[in-house]
Amino acid sequence: MKSLKKKRRVQIIALAAVALVVSTALIGYAMRDGINFFRSPTQVMDEPPAPTEVFRIGGLVEDGSLVRGEGETIRFNVTDGGAVVPVTYTGVLPDLFEENQGMVGMGSYRDGVFEATEILAKHDEDYMPKEVVDSLKEQGVYQEPNG
């Protein structure tokens, strides 16, 4: 009688382990497109990612680099003080997007240009994404906002 209970217990534990492995694999598979890593312009220039990799880049929009009027495509440079990455974006920019302000873009890096599919800008005068602040602090160019 005891061996039957022991056998049943082992079967239940084995089934639970298999269920755990399968559910972990399914969660990882579902999240594969939802995980986008953040990179600073310096990291992108030091180790260029594969053209198929989608990631986020952030920094300051370089002063004097914003070019509009080429159809729907907008060109600008993003910098963290250590490196500059050219960016192209087709679409409507956020209202608060301007030169010398923080931004985060999502897209991929192809042929030396970051092709953005989404651009996020600051929320107010003092807002800057945490990743951008950390990157600028590493470069030694971050300045605390006034106020």
Rank of each mutant, 00 (worst) to 15 (best):
L4V: 08
I27W: 10
G82D: 14
A121Q: 05
V67A: 08
F114W: 08
I27C: 00
I12R: 15
E118S: 12
F97V: 04
Q11Y: 11
Q101F: 00
F97Q: 06
P94D: 04
E72G: 06
V104C: 03
D63Y: 01
I27G: 00
G91M: 06
Q139D: 01
V133C: 07
V132F: 04
G59R: 15
R9I: 05
Y142L: 10
R32T: 00
T24D: 11
A25W: 10
I13E: 12
P86L: 11
E53F: 10
D95I: 02
G28K: 07
G82L: 10
A50S: 14
G140K: 06
R110C: 00
A83R: 11
L60E: 03
R9C: 09
P49Q: 13
V84M: 01
A16C: 06
G69F: 01
V104S: 11
E70W: 14
L20N: 05
V21W: 00
K7P: 01
Y127V: 10
D95C: 01
T88L: 03
I57V: 15
M103H: 02
G91W: 10
S23V: 15
A30K: 13
R56F: 12
T52P: 00
F114R: 07
K6Y: 11
T79I: 05
V87M: 01
K137C: 04
K6N: 14
D95G: 03
Y29Q: 06
H123A: 09
Q139G: 09
E98P: 01
S3E: 15
Q11G: 14
D126T: 07
T42L: 07
I74Q: 00
Y89N: 00
T90A: 05
Q43E: 15
A19R: 11
E70R: 12
D80W: 11
S65F: 05
G107E: 02
V54Q: 07
A14D: 08
G34N: 13
L96P: 00
G81F: 07
